[in-house]
Structures are given as structure tokens and as C-alpha cells.
Design a protein around this nucleic acid. Sequence first.
DNA 1: AAACAGTTTAAACAAGCGTTTGAAATAACG
DNA 2: CGTTATTTCAAACGCTTGTTTAAACTGTTT
Lengths: 208, 208
Amino acid sequence: MSTKNKILDAAEHLFADKGFNGTSLREITSLADVNLAAVNYHFGSKKELIKAVMSRYMNELSPRLEASLTVICQQETPPSLVEVFSAFVEPLLSLNVFKENGTSNFLQLLGRGYTDSQGFLRWFLTTQYPGVIEKFVVAVQRAYPELSAEDIFWRLHLTMGTVVFTMSSSDALMDIAQSDFGQQIDISDVINKVIPFVAAGVGAPLVH
Amino acid sequence: MSTKNKILDAAEHLFADKGFNGTSLREITSLADVNLAAVNYHFGSKKELIKAVMSRYMNELSPRLEASLTVICQQETPPSLVEVFSAFVEPLLSLNVFKENGTSNFLQLLGRGYTDSQGFLRWFLTTQYPGVIEKFVVAVQRAYPELSAEDIFWRLHLTMGTVVFTMSSSDALMDIAQSDFGQQIDISDVINKVIPFVAAGVGAPLVH
DNA sequence: AAACAGTTTAAACAAGCGTTTGAAATAACG
DNA sequence: CGTTATTTCAAACGCTTGTTTAAACTGTTT
């Protein structure tokens, strides 16, 4: 395997586990078994490495996500909110084929990116992959037309918060669930617990 | 004002803004206008300072929260989930009297604690303030008896995620809402947007 | 074989971190 | 007043961080 990919794999694993700020280049290059200077040689800087790790997943995910949401939007009858959110499941789980633990890693990275370096990921997603967000908003609008643009804005951010936060601590949660309730949980179980929650949250009655 | 309190105030502000790992003691003591060594003299270490910042709020909040939840639990008729979550509002907003921007700062700190140093805040809350969590679980159980212990576990963590994540980026969200929708939003508005969302999420129908 | 671009390497760099030190300044008390 | 404690201060400590350097090595091209 190429040095570049060894670095990407090691960085992905460590970033997901300990956050961007919490992971040093020395840890990454040590795990990847390459020289310390390799990161700056191949990627230029740590920040560029972070972007590269995220891009590798987003380039895989975003066309699948757009396609899945397009199907939802083109249905004759408006979708339910559960259907809208369920449109994410198959593309997300496909990351497990693309790479071992891909789904879990990507979602954890998403959470790290949101909280670690303030605003960076929001910028990254909205500027680099606007199509996904656009299509998602349209789908939600079809499912719940009474929601104003402002309400959608807030509830989508609440959804983002729920998903991203849960996923960034999903390993710990799965461990607790395992020891307290003796149930073997995997990432797709977690997804299936999140969907009814956020669907109900977005679909909550409006108060005036 | 005492050196100790100057440090606590500065640390609180910076921690909320940039996280625990992202804030250096030099930034704190510089903003507080005290000597660098003062932190280690008065608190022993950075970790102890973090605990002190959190404790100052928790000691103010937790008795009010327990009292408010006790009222909810002792009602004749079981509460609705919205009522349960609304029990948090008054105690949380009371932090604004106790300290300027207290509510917002505390909730942001909560978010930081959850994501910054993995598991630390969970330990902090469950060991130092178990009463609040216990009473909260009982209240939810009364409101939605069909929920199993496992379901409650998951949905409370989803709730925690929603709240904590939203609050840790609430400043950015309020800015966007302001510029995109021209509405002046404050922290209590945010709270009132979160409550219906999480109440509906926790109350989502069970799938088998 | 010689020259070349691409890559890897060990070593050093400057800057920042949390923490410690020992002396100076201040406060408290007999 | 003089003598303890307590608190402040500048300076340094040892360590880690991201990044850079220049030499060594690799494989390909002339």
C-alpha cells in the first residue's frame, strides 16, 4: 500500500477516536509506520490531511446520497419523514463495503469535525457538497409542508446535532448498552434507534 | 474580585468558546489579568480548574433541578414529556441571574465536556450528581411507561446529544438565524425550539 | 554508467504547552 | 514593630507540537 494511503488510514482511525486536535502527526505516522515528514511531504499540512480524510468519504458518499434523496423527492406521493431519513441508511451502510468500519468511522469523523474546529466542517459541507443539503431540505419540505424555512433550519440542525453527537460517542454507548442490557449492538442498530427519534423530532407539532 | 474568581470567570468564558483542550492557561491568566502560576497555585492543575468551573454551575443548578423534577414526579396525573423537559427551563434560565450569560455558558460547557475529553463529563455527572439523572429517568418513565429501560437509556442519550451539541454551537446558530431570517434569537428561544424536538423524539412510537 | 525526478530519512527548528521554582511583595497576627 | 503566613511574580523547566531541512536512497530515463 502507498505511503499516502497508509497515512490516510491511520489518520482516519485516530481522528475518529481522539479528535483532530487530540491526534498528533507523530501518532499518525507511527501507526502508519511511515516517516514523520511524510505527512507534510504528501499533504502539505495537517489541515490538508484532515480535508483529505474527509474528502475520501464524502466523494464516496455524496453521489449515493444525492441519488437516494432524488428518488425520495421524485415519488408521486410525498414521503413520510421516516422515509426521508431512511434514505440515508443504505448509502451510509455502503461505506462498510468501501472500507472496514467505514460507516462508524465516517460518522464519528463528522462529529469530530463539527465540534473540534468551530465552523470548519459546516463550511466544508456547505461549500463542497451543497447538493446533498439542498436535496435533503426539499425532501423534508415535501414530507412536512407546514414547516417554515426557519423551522426547517432549526430542526435540521437539531437533527445534525443528535446524529453527529451520538455517533461521535457511539463506541462508548454501544459498550454501555452491552454491559448494562447484555445486548450486542452494532452501528446499524444505532442508526435504527436514531431514525425514529429524529423523524419524530423534525415532525414535532409546531407551537406558536 | 479575588484572583480565584477572576480565573474562574475567564476560564469559563474561554472554555465555553474554544473547548478545554483548545484553551491554554496562558490565555486564561492573560484574560483574567493574573500571573500564569496563579492557576496551579490556587487550583493545583488545569484539570482541577475545569472541575471547579463545572462545579460552580452544577452546585447552583442541581438542587433547583432536583426540586423542579420532584414536583413533576409528585403530580397526581402523569406528566407529558413536554412537561418533563419544560421542568428544566426555569432552573436553567435562573443561571442568567446567578451570572451574566450563565445559561448559555453552562450549556456550552456541558457540550465541551462531553466531546472534548472522552467520558470525563459522563463520569463527573453520574458520580457527583446522580440525583438529577435518577429523578429525570423516573419522570420520563411516568410520562411514557411503555418505554423499556433500554429504550430510555438510548433516547436519553439522544436527547443529551441534541441539547449539548446544539448548545455548544448555539452562538453560531443564533448568528445564522439572525442573518438568514432576520430574527433576534436568544438562549431561551433556542431552548424553546429544542424542547418540542426532544419531547417528540423521546415520545416517538416504538418499532419492533 | 551517468543524470534525473521522486521519495524517504534522521535531525533539527521555533513555538507552545502545563508545571515548578525561589525570591519578592503583601497581609495577618502576637 | 517584628514575625510569621499567604499570595504574587518573573523566569525557567521539560516536554510535545507542526513544520522544515538537507542528505540519503529509489527507480527510471538518457
